[in-house]
Design a protein around this nucleic acid. Sequence first.
DNA 1: GCCAACGTTGGC
DNA 2: GCCAACGTTGGC
Length: 159
Amino acid sequence: MRYWLMKSEPDDCSIDDLARRPGSTVPWYGVRNYQARNLMRDQMQVGDAVFFYHSSCPQPGIAGIARVSSPAYPDATQFDPASPYHDPKSTPEAPRWLNVDVQFVRKTPLVPLAELRSHTELANMRVLARANRLSITPVDPAEWRFITRELMGLDNDGI
DNA sequence: GCCAACGTTGGC
DNA sequence: GCCAACGTTGGC
């Protein structure tokens, strides 16, 4: 099992929005970056653990835990002309963009970005790398353990 | 609203 | 294949 951090703008879908959805599940649509797409396609597996991160908001940080609940499949929004994520160059025969489904596990105390940055144990976290723009980044098991145990006070990796 | 940094596009 | 211009991300 792998660990991930996935960014979502809470105005669009917050951890509370995820918890309220049918089946507590949301398709992680709208990824339009090849690196992030390839991570979903090639590396993610059902059951992988996810930090749900709130970005572009007053209090950026990790707001909860989720799990990957489907393999990658074509992102429906790429074919929808009314969607902001519409991609006219993509076709159902050769879909360019994929998404996985993500399921709610728990809400956690918010771990602000500034706090993540303050811990030497997390100095190499991908999401903290200078000018990181990937909306999906891998998390090392040791980083996951540190955050869930020491910063959130959770046992069993919080999952 | 600003701006740094990066990915993508498209002309050549 | 190079690279300038442009668009986007996302913290502050």
